[in-house]
Amino acid sequence: MYYKPCIVLLCCAIALVPVSSLASPFNQAISLYAGYIPSLGGNLYSYEQENTFGSKTGIDGINKSQTGFSTATINRLLGATTGATFKLVMYDFFTARIGANYFKSVWGGKGKTVYNDGADRLLECNYSFDGFDIPVTVGIIIPFYKDMKITFSCGIAYAWGRYKNKFESDAPLSYKGQFKGSAYPLVINTEGEYFINDKFAISTSLSYYRGTTNVIKDSKKGDGSTDYAPIDFSGYRFLLGVSYYFKPI
């Protein structure tokens, strides 16, 4: 309940810290980056997948095969992500950060499986996931001379996601689900920056998010079914990018 005001206050504090003086113990930087998210959305569980298609583990368990059916493996989603982070560096060793990231599934989530509704039937499955998040973290920097910095930070994010699924067979049957919701996942980030000169650095980072929404009701109308699913933001992110420091390091 108090997360939102805290995030807003922290954002304001970071943005308002003055850095105009070269003697100031504060520096600021902007990072732009892109990367990927293995297993975006986790196993994408929903109630109908268990109730109608017999999968207790969403996209993992829905894969089945049977002689005489041309099935194709439905892989977990691989997501692409891009974003920017504003960093406040305090006394060279401490940092507070706020970012904005967009993510979207770019591979996986499509294929064919079999299920039984009295007779074996081929089922075409489609999954997709997209959303954005605003992570706010604080952490510690280990600078190595003027060459590089290694940073470890943690905090929380406001994350919003949209998970869609679609199941079609020649029964005829068509289930479509769309779930939208937000959560406040835990964020842990490790970043390395290699300075090309005293203001620009190339960077790489590993982030781990851990957080899931409550179970959300399907917002897709007109397909004759109502599904329920949580939206899972948990997972690792690998990022590559560039940083610009407002003052020389």
């Binding site: 190595f144 001379y145 060459d147 590089m148 290694i150 390395g192 690998f238 590559l240």
Partner: peptide, 8 residues
């Protein structure tokens, strides 16, 4: 593939 950060 990725970035490496030499420690001297």
């Amino acid at each position: 593939a990725g970035l490496q950060f030499p420690l001297r």
